[in-house]
Design a protein around this nucleic acid. Structure first.
Lengths: 120, 120
DNA sequence: TCCTTGAATAGACATCCATCTAAACAGTGA
DNA sequence: TCACTGTTTAGATGGATGTCTATTCAAGGA
């Protein structure tokens, strides 16, 4: 169930938004990633994992940062996982998550305003 | 109704996601921007506007690119406008939209993977 | 003034989504 | 094997969201 789709999607994608119009397909793929980040809890989870010492964090670390039930956190982690932004690995009792920096980097590159056709 | 809230939000925001954990407030503000981009139609609109000659596009240019009703396009433009990603200006019969490159730039900067505490 | 065209608003409707509780699964240790 | 802790899955529910049609507003021309 470790789907890496988004990496492929990201590989095809994209010159910066502002360089040339996105195709419908590119837009669908990119919107999936943005959708995964379009929630405050998921953004904080992503940030907590990415900034955690060692580049990984276990679910137990994450749950304490929120006033939410365990299953809700688990749900959000699943969304992030399925979008390809993070991966999880079980080691003994605990599950550790880490981010895919390439995906963040590509996303960042897509957003860079970049040079467009400026008026003369 | 020309709300520039998100620019202020963005000003306060943020060191890269991966540098330090987002606060709850920062996460809410950022998620608002990502939510605005979490739709294929809005992403394409944004891209069409940003990449259009002169840095601006009128609604009439945009509508033709989609199999959607005018009101639906108008709705999506409103979402983008309220999020602070674009502004619209009426000139005569037509309304022209352009992006706020600063917002894109800040967003891009937030996503850059950046250096985190790497294991020794 | 009236008509036409471009664009936004209002309201309805179906779908999606964040959250919860209850239950199941995974691993550790007695 | 049993009990305990950590994590995920299943199912339900209320609220948010994308789309539409009908209507209204804005600007220009006959």
């Amino acid at each position: 169930m470790s789907k890496q789709l988004p990496l492929a999607a990201i590989d095809a994608c994209c010159s910066p938004l502002a360089r040339e119009p996105l195709s419908a397909e590119q837009a669908v793929e990119l919107s999936g990633l943005f959708k995964a980040m379009a929630d405050p809890v998921r953004l904080r989870l992503l940030s907590l994992i990415a900034s955690h010492a060692g580049g990984e964090a276990c679910v137990c670390d994450l749950t304490d940062a929120f006033d939410l039930s365990g299953p809700t956190i688990s749900h959000h982690l699943k969304v992030l996982r399925q979008s390809g932004l993070i991966t999880g690995e079980r080691r003994g009792t605990w599950v550790y998550y880490r981010v895919h920096p390439e995906v963040l980097a590509r996303l960042s590159a897509v957003l860079v305003p970049g040079e467009r056709n400026v008026p003369a």
